[in-house]
Amino acid sequence: MNIIEPHVHMIARTVQDYERMARMHTVAICEPAFWAGYDRTSPAAFHDYFTHISEFEPTRAAQYLIDHYCWICINPKEAEDVEFSREVISFMPEFLSKPNVLGIGEIGLNKNTRNEMMIFEEQVELALQMDQLIWIHTPHLQDKWKGTKMMADYLVGHGGIDPNQVCFDHVEEHTMPLLHDLGFWTAMTVYPVTKNSPDRVIDLVERYSLERKIVDASGDWGPSDPATLHDTLFQMRLRGHADPDVEQLFYGNPKHFLNQKGKFKTR
C-alpha cells in the first residue's frame, strides 16, 4: 500500500527520515511553509526559504523515490508584522505558479490576534485570485477552539469560498464537529504529546466517517516523528478496518484533495 504524508517540514529533518519513510512505503510528501523557530530578519529570508522547499528539498526526496511538493505562505506567527508580511505576499505569486507548489499554506492563526487575522484574510484573497488550494494551521492547545471558530466563521461568511478546496489541519475532538458539518476537509495530526494519538485519530474517523479526512504526522523541529503516521495506519488495521478504507484514508483522500488543481501527480 502506498502512503502519502500530507504535512512534514523536511527542512527540519535529517535524511534518515527520508530513508525511513521510503521503507514504510511513503511515495509522496508535502511541505507547508512554517515558522523556523525564530523570526526571519528580512522578507528576503522567506524568498530563500521558498526556494529551498520548492527546489532543493525535492532533490533530497527524489533520492528516496519520494515525490516532494510544497505550500507557500507567510506563517501565522510571523504574520503579526503586517508590513513585513505584505512584502512576503508580494513575491508569493512567483512561487505559486511552479508545478510542484500546491497552494497557500499553512496559513492560519497562532495567538488569534487582529494582525494575524488580517494577513490570513489577505492570503485567502490571493488564493482566490490565483485559484489556489488553501491549507490551514489551527492554533495550539488553549487557542485552538477560538482560532478555528474565527477562521471558519470568516470563510463561511465570505461567501466565495468552496470548502472543498480548504483543509483545516491539527483538528481534534472539539474542532471536528464544526468543520465536518461545514464541509471543509480536515487533517488530524499525530504527535507524541500535544496533538492526537493514533487511537484518537481512528476514533474520529469512526465517528465522523472517512469523508474529507486526512492524517499527517507534521514532522518538524519539535517532538514529532513521521512514523506516527504509519503507527496510525497500523492502529486502523488492528481495529479490523478493511484495506480499501485504510488506503482511502492514507492515500486516496489526500491524493484527491491535493490534486484538485492537477499538480499532484504522484504514483
Binding site: E173, V193, T194, S197, D199, R200, E206
Partner: peptide
C-alpha cells in the same frame, strides 16, 4: 502540564471509545 493534559485526554477518549 502537557504530559498531564495528554494523559487525561487519552483516558477520556478511551472512556468515549468504550461507550461507543
Amino acid at each position: 502540564f502537557l504530559h498531564m493534559r495528554s494523559a487525561l485526554i487519552e483516558t477520556a477518549a478511551s472512556f468515549d471509545r468504550i461507550q461507543l
